[in-house]
């Protein structure tokens, strides 16, 4: 049996008084791309943030590489090799593109992409290195947000709706990138609304509702599950 890279069990989370996650269970195996689906407000972003350690209060368990992360501060979790590309992208406007790219410190001596490899994936970023972070288009911001977590040596990447609001050609480019990263052995947890697009990348799907995982299936079973999915996602 392959040991999970990430194993989430009974994970609960709160923002102040509001209880958002009510016992989330799922796992991601090394080298897998797993996609989390669910309606708006289901708790997908909160799940990623809880794994990263940036919600107010957590309970339950989220083990990465066998290490329990609930109870660790987010900087400690990052240094285990976990990286988040947030839904709002989080590009720093007072920093240049280069500074944004170079900001996340190395968390492991090896395992990161070189700058050349990153520029091959995202040629646009190379051209904009000296621009201000706030001057980028939405697509460029998304690419930068992904690019900057690739050089640190983190091997587990969480991408929160990387295609949201972007043009089809950029979505394609991001899709190719995720494919490359998978080939390079990264383990990826993807949150995505566009499940047809995700099905070309993901090994497995989980479906969330009201802060719980309510279903799971392999990518190859997508067609068989289409009716259920439409139901879950209300599309």
């Amino acid at each position: 049996m392959i040991e999970a890279a990430l194993k989430v069990a009974g994970l609960e989370a709160w923002y102040d008084e509001s209880h958002i996650l009510h016992g989330v269970n799922f796992e991601v195996r090394p080298g897998e791309v797993v996609t989390l689906l669910g309606r708006n407000g289901a708790g997908k972003t909160t799940t990623l943030k809880s794994i990263m350690g940036i919600v107010g209060k957590r309970k339950g368990s989220a083990q990465y590489g066998g290490r329990e992360t609930v109870g660790l501060s987010s900087d400690r979790i990052a240094r285990l090799g976990v990286a988040l590309c947030p839904e709002e992208r989080g590009i720093f406007h007072s920093l240049s593109v280069r500074e944004n790219l170079m900001l996340p410190p190395r968390v492991a001596p090896t395992g990161g992409l070189t700058l050349d490899q990153i520029f091959t994936l995202f040629p646009n970023i190379k051209e904009r290195l000296s621009s201000g972070g706030g001057k980028l288009s939405g697509g460029e911001q998304q690419m930068l947000a992904i690019a900057r977590i690739l050089r640190t040596g983190a091997r587990f990447l969480m991408l929160d709706e990387p295609t949201e609001g972007l043009a089809p050609v950029i979505i394609q480019q991001i899709g190719r990138t995720i494919g490359e990263l998978k080939k390079a052995g990264f383990t990826i947890l993807l949150v995505e609304q566009n499940f047809r697009w995700a099905s070309t990348l993901a090994d497995r799907f989980y479906v969330m509702e009201h802060g719980r995982i309510i279903d799971a299936f392999a990518a190859k079973d997508l067609t068989a599950n289409m009716d259920k999915l439409h139901d879950y996602l209300g599309v």
Partner: peptide, 21 residues
């Protein structure tokens, strides 16, 4: 300094990158 400026904008994200904010 880049850490400082970034943390002024969004401390929790800088921390989530592994910086002891």
């Amino acid at each position: 300094g880049a850490y400082l400026r970034a943390a002024t904008e969004n401390p929790s994200l800088v921390r989530a990158f592994g910086v002891n904010v």
